[in-house]
């Protein structure tokens, strides 16, 4: 169920979403280093994401997409500009406030699964549940993730795809409003990648979670409502996809 996702009937590629944007990035700049070594990663970048969207950030290596995701995720800070989440400016928040923001609002999925080696798959998911006052139903989520048969296994006993499912479970069990995925299929094979992308899409449809996904895989844009292409720290194109396809139908 897509909840607040844009309707498939809205067909214009450059149309703004109908829903009120709850993530607004405006004139965001970020650089690393100083002097001759200074590298401008984000150069006045602006866009907005509506609640319930699957938004894909595309771009080549070094285009600034991971940096952008980290700033939105509250684990890095921009030099100037603003990032508004539900009206609150992340750039004004101190470390503790950013911590609370991450705890309550965000789920994070990385290319590397970063699971805790001596906790089972189910227990790794519970690590996320602990952070929420109203987590999703654990068993139901385990089923949704297709992990029922593997929930008692340690990460070392799971395949890459299964580990990534666990990491998605850990991120979404706390029922976050925004799920950030940084190259979630980067370490997976073709079939497994499609399964994981389908799972992310299912999560979006089932729980209404807004998804912001960084990838360098152009094909993935077809499953997104909203596609932002970055190059040299700037938004090169921003498109809206009125008819995203199911991830299982993706090909590359």
């Amino acid at each position: 169920m897509s909840g607040n996702a844009p309707s498939k009937n809205e067909s214009s590629e450059n149309r703004q979403p109908k829903n009120k944007p709850f993530l607004v990035v405006k004139d965001l700049c970020k650089s690393y280093g100083t002097g001759d070594a200074k590298q401008n990663v984000l150069r006045g970048l602006s866009f907005s994401v509506a609640q319930g969207e699957i938004c894909v950030l595309l771009g080549p290596s070094g285009s600034g997409k991971s940096t952008l995701l980290n700033i939105i995720g509250g684990i890095d800070q921009g030099d100037s500009g603003s990032v508004l989440f539900d009206g609150h400016n992340l750039t004004d928040m101190n470390t503790a406030e950013l911590g609370r923001y991450r705890r309550k609002e965000l789920g994070y999925v990385f290319q590397t699964y970063n699971l805790i080696g001596n906790l089972t798959g189910k227990e790794n998911v519970e690590v996320g549940a602990y952070l929420s006052d109203s987590p999703l139903d654990l068993e139901e989520l385990i089923n949704t993730l297709g992990l029922s048969e593997h929930k008692g296994k340690l990460p070392g006993q799971l395949s890459g795809g299964q580990q990534q499912r666990v990491s998605i479970g850990r991120a979404i069990i706390k029922n976050p409003r925004l799920l950030l995925c940084d190259e979630p299929t980067g370490a997976l094979d073709y079939e497994t990648s499609k399964e994981i992308l389908q799972l992310i899409q299912d999560v979006n449809q089932k729980y209404g979670t807004t998804i912001l996904m960084v990838t360098h895989n152009e094909a993935i844009k077809h499953m997104a409502n909203h596609v932002i292409k970055l190059r040299d720290g700037k938004v090169r194109t921003e498109t809206f996809n009125p008819e995203p396809i199911q991830a299982s139908e993706l090909e590359w």
Partner: peptide
């Protein structure tokens, strides 16, 4: 050794 796990937990909201 668990640096990335810790990073993930912190990014997820653990203090």
């Amino acid at each position: 050794k668990e640096s990335r796990v810790i990073g993930t937990l912190l990014a997820s909201g653990y203090t």
